[in-house]
């Protein structure tokens, strides 16, 4: 085969190889992390990501200040929406979430979690979008890893004991949210 072609091809391939080699050395995340500490004992369901298991706990900074700890929200059902600001279906379901928050906010905790995004990007977005419900920041992707998040959006419905009652992969709308909440709303 002609030398020039061979050299060009080898050069391009080496570049690829270098990139891949550098890549395979470090991969963070992608592993299902369902072991978030031990349960405090008693009759609590096992911690995991399946319906009927207790959702993994987390503590995150809220956009606008303050913190939120999932386990402290028990006593009320929780609608947990994992999203990013750049994902079109995530943005499309925000008005529905806002509406549900306004109508049912006293009976269910609506929490948005922005995964792998920096605080300023989220702050900018929230300010422009008119979101009223609390949005937590997960810039390091810890919650993303604990919940084995490979795609967004996705929503988790927890009952008042923090046990997973339903799961919505992908985007949803008002009807979808209400249907998912039907089982846990008092």
């Amino acid at each position: 085969m002609n030398k020039i072609l061979l050299r060009a091809a080898v050069l391009l391939l080496l570049t690829l190889l270098a990139g891949c080699a550098a890549g395979t050395v470090g991969n963070a995340g992608g592993s299902p992390g369902a072991e978030a500490g031990g349960s405090p004992g008693g009759a609590e369901a096992a911690i995991g990501l399946a319906v009927g298991q207790t959702a993994p706990d987390f503590t995150l900074t809220l956009n606008g200040g303050g913190e939120v700890t999932l386990s402290q929200l028990r006593g009320q059902p929780v609608f947990l929406n994992l999203f990013t600001t750049w994902c079109p279906p995530c943005r499309e379901e925000i008005p529905a979430l806002q509406k549900i928050y306004e109508e049912y906010g006293d009976r269910v905790s609506i929490i948005g979690v922005s995964v792998t995004e920096s605080a300023d990007v989220v702050a900018e977005f929230i300010a422009a979008s008119g979101v009223g419900y609390p949005v937590a920041l997960d810039p390091d992707g810890i919650v993303a890893a604990d919940y084995d998040v490979q795609f967004i959006p996705q929503s988790w419905v927890l009952d008042s004991d923090g046990v997973i009652a339903d799961y919505i992969p992908g985007g949803t709308d008002e009807a979808g949210i209400l249907a998912a909440l039907a089982g846990v709303l008092p």
């Binding site: 891949c20 395979t24 470090g26 995340g29």
Partner: peptide
């Protein structure tokens, strides 16, 4: 080479490294 993260095929996860 461009699709070397074989583990992803097993569990449907995505490679998240610097590449």
């Amino acid at each position: 080479l461009q699709n070397g993260y074989l583990r992803g095929f097993g569990d449907g996860s995505l490679y998240r490294g610097p590449g």
